[in-house]
C-alpha cells in the first residue's frame, strides 16, 4: 500500500526510485542523510561530554595503558575493509552482477561479526581485570561510547542480513529500488565505520 506497488493502491508516491530533479535525491537517500545528521548530533554530544569531562579531571589515564591497541587496530582494519566490501556490493548491483553482490555483502556481514567477537574478548578482558563502568569516568565513557557504537553495528547487521537474505528478492522485480536500498544501507554502514575511526584514536591512543 505504501510502496505504491500492491494492486489495491490507487496512488503512487513520487520519487521513491527516481531522484527529484530539484534536490537530485530519491526520498530514502534524503531520509538517510537527515537521519545521519541526527546521529552526528548524538555522537557529537557524547564526544563533547568526553572532552569536557577530560579537561576538568585531575588525573585522566592514558588510553594505551588500559586498552589493547593491537586488538583495536585489528578492529579498525576489519571495519574499514567492511566499508570497502559494502561499496563493492553496491557497485556489483550497478553492474547487474547479483552473485558478486551476495559475496561482497556476505563479506561485509562477516567483518561486522568479527568486529563484535573481538569487542567481546576486549570487554571480557576488562571485566576480568575488574575494570567496570563504575571504576572510573574514563572506563565509563569507554563503555558508553563503544557500547553505543556496538549497538549501531548490531543494527547494521540486522539491516544487512535482511537485505542479504529475504530482502534480496526485490532484485527480481524492482532491481533499481533494491540497488538504492543497498546504497542507503551502505551510507549508514560507512557512518558506523566513521564513528569508530574517531573512537579508536580518542579512546585507545590519546
Amino acid at each position: 500500500m505504501s510502496s505504491g506497488t500492491s494492486s489495491s493502491s490507487i496512488y503512487v508516491l513520487p520519487h521513491t526510485v527516481e531522484p527529484n530533479p530539484e534536490t537530485g535525491l530519491f526520498n530514502a537517500k534524503l531520509g538517510i542523510w537527515l537521519f545521519l545528521a541526527s546521529e552526528v548530533m548524538l555522537f557529537g554530544a557524547l564526544f563533547s561530554s568526553y572532552i569536557l569531562l577530560r579537561v576538568s579531571s585531575v588525573n585522566w589515564p592514558l588510553g594505551s595503558t588500559i586498552l589493547n591497541i593491537p586488538l583495536g587496530t585489528l578492529n579498525t582494519m576489519v571495519l574499514i575493509s567492511s566499508s570497502v566490501t559494502m561499496v563493492m556490493a553496491w557497485a556489483s548491483l550497478k553492474m547487474k552482477d547479483f552473485g558478486k553482490f551476495k559475496l561482497y555483502l556476505g563479506l561485509t556481514l562477516l567483518c561486522a561479526f568479527i568486529f563484535l567477537i573481538v569487542k567481546y574478548f576486549e570487554y571480557s578482558a576488562k571485566f576480568h581485570h575488574h575494570l567496570f563502568p563504575e571504576t572510573s569516568t574514563y572506563m565509563a565513557i569507554y563503555f558508553t561510547l563503544t557500547g553505543l557504537h556496538g549497538i549501531h553495528v548490531i543494527g547494521g547487521i540486522i539491516v544487512n542480513s535482511y537485505l542479504w537474505g529475504p530482502g534480496s528478492k526485490m532484485w527480481l522485480d524492482q532491481p533499481e529500488r533494491f540497488t538504492n536500498r543497498i546504497e542507503i544501507a551502505g551510507l549508514y554502514w560507512h557512518f558506523v565505520d566513521l564513528v569508530w575511526i574517531f573512537l579508536f584514536p580518542v579512546l585507545y591512543l590519546l
Partner: peptide, 25 residues
C-alpha cells in the same frame, strides 16, 4: 527536533548509566 533531540538522548543514556551502572558522569 532532528538536531536538538539527540544530545538529550546522549544525556539520557549517560544518566541511565549513572543510575544503573553506577558511573559518575
Amino acid at each position: 527536533l532532528l538536531l536538538a533531540f539527540p544530545p538529550l538522548e546522549a544525556a539520557g543514556v549517560m544518566q541511565l548509566m549513572d543510575r544503573v551502572a553506577h558511573t559518575s558522569f
